[in-house]
Design a protein around this nucleic acid. Structure first.
Lengths: 226, 226
DNA sequence: ACGTTCGTTTAACAAAAAATTAATATGGCT
DNA sequence: AGCCATATTAATTTTTTGTTAAACGAACGT
């Protein structure tokens, strides 16, 4: 099944360039000429990736990005912005709007294609489908807060324990400080002592095995894939 | 009637491992040692599921997958690839070839079996005909708001109780937050306290038994198929 | 039209589970 | 050994759900 890419740009030359190069790589491509139309197309086309210009009439890319990230059915879609090098201010705005990456104009076809290919390679490596994360032999399922272990047994984790495991597994092999875990899982208003995390980590390890979550003394915890 | 599985692999040891474990689980198993032979067997055997290696002589799995997905009589068959972790490039290729899922080598018998079982469970779960839902031994009948239990007894549920059960059963093994249940069953204008759901859930459990609806504390309720 | 039953909802309290804290043990490192 | 950070266990608090009862109103039968 071909991967789907939606390209949104008001410049028809660029649009054509993008469509041509991506189609050649066997992506299924659809297009739109402004943010509003883009969102409409996205809802029916359900692309895996959106490539979008920032400056557009009717609805600009920043605005469209915000809407996408606030729409339940679309928020998981990866968004890459096309931005002229000059307008660097936009980069900041773009990331605020939930940009996952960006490319600078002028577009170089080969660079574009290799970046897109790299994205899909990374995606399939991560194996995230509908909140089901497969990694290191585990199947971490957000649909029912369960973890299927390598031996096929299934265990359901309580909310916090699951959230910690899930979050760590989404950024494998990257150490997360206790502070950052608190931010991500508890939110901005933290009334909780950092040691609390240790206890949750212990419980998770108890349930799924010790080998998945590593400790880096003085730094934090990390989901290990090897 | 036993479910049919076709396994295709040129490594006879793996083939034997797969056949042994699947037969033990009462699947009807046939095998082939390359893609070409696999397709031939598939046409006469008409399996429900194909388990296939990628690297094979004569015709590799990718090629075979493409042919299967382009053959009218075979395209509905679910295909799971066996892939060595190292060859990640193949994953992309495999999905292009119409893979529905994949398993990484080395094969762990228990994980294999549980994955295959899970697949067939999901398949047979889809028993909805004209608002009659058969699942987990229950027959949930929207025509008359009745539920036939495993012992054959029939109970009629009041509207709200039935709607909750029915909705939960249409998305088995997925937690539904109280909020989402309110949306789905009461509609957008909510004059109701979330606790109300608890009471309905209790009444449903009282009538059909406790084992069907599970609670995930802090998250919501879930219809369990086991 | 009346009383009665049934379904829905709320409120109140009990029970259970989970989250958090505190206290103590362990282990690595200089 | 002594320090430091984490692991672990136990104890406590908080949160969430289970359960019961009761109020209310609509539907039903007579």
């Amino acid at each position: 099944m071909a991967k789907k890419v939606l390209v949104i740009d008001d410049d028809l030359d660029i649009l054509e360039l993008l469509i041509y190069n991506l189609s050649k790589e066997n992506y299924e491509v659809k297009s739109a000429v402004n943010g509003l139309e883009g969102i409409k197309v996205a809802k029916s086309f359900m692309p895996d990736l959106i490539l979008m210009d920032i400056m557009m009439p009717v609805m600009d890319g920043i605005e469209a990005g915000k809407i996408i990230k606030n729409t339940e059915s679309l928020k998981h879609i990866y968004v890459i912005y096309l931005t002229a090098r000059a307008e660097e201010y936009s980069e900041v705005a773009a990331f605020d709007a939930g940009a996952d990456d960006y490319l600078t104009k002028p577009i170089k076809p080969r660079a574009l294609v290799s970046r897109i290919n790299a994205f899909f390679r990374k995606e399939t490596q991560k194996n995230v489908v509908d909140g089901i994360l497969e990694i290191a032999g585990l199947r971490i399922n957000k649909e029912n807060y369960s973890v299927t272990k390598e031996d096929g047994s299934i265990v359901i984790l309580p909310k916090k324990e699951f959230e910690i495991l899930y979050y760590l597994a989404t950024v494998p092999n990257k150490v997360q400080s206790r502070d950052s875990l608190l931010q991500k899982i508890w939110g901005s208003d933290i009334f909780v002592v950092e040691r609390t995390i240790d206890v949750h980590i212990r419980k998770v390890r108890e349930k799924i095995g010790d080998k998945y979550i590593g400790t880096l003394k003085g730094v934090g915890y990390m989901f290990k894939t090897e």
